[in-house]
């Protein structure tokens, strides 16, 4: 079984984790910019973006894993508008790095007006970074974090409303809204966006609940990740979700779709992403 981990914070993980991921079939990882556990200075962000775009791809490559990243100021540090202005000014030049897929993980944390303002500014950067394709200009891919726990439902609604306000400038097929759970997945999928489910202890989904959601809402435009970071988390929770699906009788083509081909399809909208969807068939 091959996996693409669509959301993992490898800067917080050991090199042994890269080896474990490679041993367990992970061929590529996508790492959104996030909160480091403490608030950084604007200069600290530039160093962080360099770590994401220079150091981590090299560390991953030792194990044959392709490393891609997303650049932004995370919502938890978006409360300081002065800092946000300085950090956002640095983003466009990193978007052209060979392994950067887009803007993310932007979003909301406590659903404050300042967070909303910085979210909208990020979306505008993605629109301004539009590249010409065969069917016209396409905004940069966007990866969105939805808030935790009691803030999630309201925050998801706010995010959808803000995206709607951008009108035709935003293509839902180029936006993934992450950390959906039972009360938000339908809102996201019905609006045409990609959805991400995160298997994370206590605060997010479990393997069994994630498979429930795959069954109830369909595997289309749905990705599964472990969002492993510096907290109590486990990169193999993605694999545990695959095993739970397998235990219930889901077949290999569907497993490949959710755990490899869906991320390959979403990320592949950026031509920098080199892993293609695959299928298996008998030799004879």
């Amino acid at each position: 079984m091959f996996f693409i981990d669509p959301h993992i914070h490898m800067v917080s993980r050991t090199t042994a984790d890269y080896e474990m991921l490679a041993l367990s079939g992970v061929v590529a990882v996508s790492e959104p910019a996030f909160w480091a556990g403490f608030d950084r200075s604007p200069a600290g962000f530039v160093d962080y973006f360099r770590q994401l775009t220079e150091f981590e791809p090299r560390r991953a490559a030792q194990f044959g894993i392709q490393h891609y990243s997303w650049i932004c100021l995370n919502p938890k540090e978006a409360q300081d508008l002065g800092k946000a202005r300085e950090v956002l000014a640095e983003i466009p030049k990193f978007l052209s790095c060979p392994s950067v897929l887009g803007i993310g993980e932007i979003g909301l944390n406590k659903n404050t007006p300042n967070e909303a303002k910085v979210f909208q500014q990020h979306v505008q950067i993605a629109i301004d970074a539009a590249s010409q394709g065969p069917s016209g200009a396409k905004h940069a891919l966007i990866l969105i974090h939805t808030p935790h726990l009691e803030d999630k439902l309201k925050g998801t609604r706010m995010i959808l409303e803000m995206l709607r306000d951008f009108g035709s400038a935003i293509d839902p097929a180029r936006v993934l809204i992450d950390h959906v759970e039972e009360h938000t997945i339908e809102l996201v999928k019905d609006a045409g966006y990609w959805a991400g489910m995160t298997i994370y202890p206590i605060s997010k989904a479990t393997p069994a609940r994630a498979v429930d959601m795959i069954e109830m809402y369909g595997p289309q435009r749905l990705c599964v990740n472990a969002a492993a970071d510096w907290g109590i988390s486990d990169p193999l929770n993605t694999h545990r979700t695959m095993l739970e699906a397998q235990r219930r009788g889901h077949r290999l083509p569907e497993l490949l779709q959710v755990f490899h081909n869906n991320p390959a399809e979403f990320f592949g909208q950026n031509s920098k992403f080199a892993v293609k969807p695959i299928k298996v068939q008998p030799l004879s």
Binding site: L149, E182, P201, S203, T206, A208, R209
Partner: peptide, 11 residues
């Protein structure tokens, strides 16, 4: 933790 277990039971 209790919240997570309740959601798991509901699911």
């Amino acid at each position: 933790e209790a919240r997570a277990r309740l959601i798991e039971l509901a699911a």
